[in-house]
Design a protein around this nucleic acid. Sequence first.
DNA 1: CCCGTTGTATCACAGCCGTGATAGAAAGGT
DNA 2: ACCTTTCTATCACGGCTGTGATACAACGGG
Lengths: 214, 214
Amino acid sequence: MPRYVDPEARRRLVVNALFRVVVRDGLQRTSLRAVADEAELNIGSLRHYFAGQQDLMRFAMQSMLDRVGGRLLEHLGRIGDLDRLPRPERLRLATGLLAELLPLDERRRAEVTVFLDFNTAARTDPAFGDLTHRAAEGTRKLVHRVLARLEASGTLRPGLDLGLETERLTALLDGLGLSGVLHPDILDARACLDVLSAHLEDLARPAGPSASAN
Amino acid sequence: MPRYVDPEARRRLVVNALFRVVVRDGLQRTSLRAVADEAELNIGSLRHYFAGQQDLMRFAMQSMLDRVGGRLLEHLGRIGDLDRLPRPERLRLATGLLAELLPLDERRRAEVTVFLDFNTAARTDPAFGDLTHRAAEGTRKLVHRVLARLEASGTLRPGLDLGLETERLTALLDGLGLSGVLHPDILDARACLDVLSAHLEDLARPAGPSASAN
DNA sequence: CCCGTTGTATCACAGCCGTGATAGAAAGGT
DNA sequence: ACCTTTCTATCACGGCTGTGATACAACGGG
């Protein structure tokens, strides 16, 4: 029984509307009025929950980082003890986790799209501050952790420079997300996943090439 | 002895000014007036050479595609017969060619930055039409060609799916460009080049690991 | 000299934008 | 009933945008 209106729910409503506008029209055309219209709210109401444009944008960015971050932590928890699983299963789980960062369905496509627009805008717009910077560091931390777990379980081929491989895999994910969002006709969801899968398989030790015998 | 003013030179002047504004302030804040100011031209003069904003943007995008494309063709021509070169040299040349797409110095950093802003904008702005689409196809064509040459010269390890490897390498280049431009403090020029170099080395056949004996 | 072409500069207009101010309705405690 | 807080709604202002129209200078050929 919320007293008055639940402000948190209102903010979620607005942020979701903002995401839809960004996906549909791009961040450039995402104005306070456009978001208010999309949320079927009066701009006056909207401004009652957000002090201004900067607040709204920062809150939206932070919200989406929280959401994606939450999902990634879910995946991480679900993995748990990696060593007890068969080798192909380990790679499958790692792929599934990192695939959370690829535009493989409408939800993730929207997330990657918004994330891309925010990031490019953040290059020159101080409104986002260091949000994108910390996000980039977080992604690398995660990727590094996944690679470290795979290595600890003996799934990777030896002699890899984990620092370099972290950057390589991160760049691959970013690039797949970029093309998947901007050129979905060239790189569709299936191709995205195939490339990621192939890359992880490539990092795995060539013990079982599984070319002929499975 | 140019009759009147050389219109082509004027357009180049304007386009260069536009690039500077985009790099400095972002495409969002790149207005006709800002470009005119940067070019030290009156906005009326500017509009004498460009019908409107769309024309200017399209022309700028096309110009930068031409420039980068020209440089890539230069590299391609300079390579010529790959098979006559020693193996490490082949990889070095391929790396140098593809490094043209990475923000390794101020010129390339500016190009990648502008290219990124244009591409993200093109997702929702019909002004750019299919320019970015053809650019994306062109990049893949180039990457595929490089990989095919390397394979034809026996430099790559066997059994590679060139189509998939093309997407992988393209995504890697895009991702390196993205991080190199947006987070240069996390991924500096050296790291960019190292990752690309390592990737190509990884695609090369492990015949000579060159760990001890060269 | 004259005149058409080319280039430069300026004004005005409508359309957005973010934002401050303000008024009034709705809600809930006393 | 009353009052405070919360919420919705609207107006107005200055600023920036692209663009059409227009006036005027500069150039180059007849």
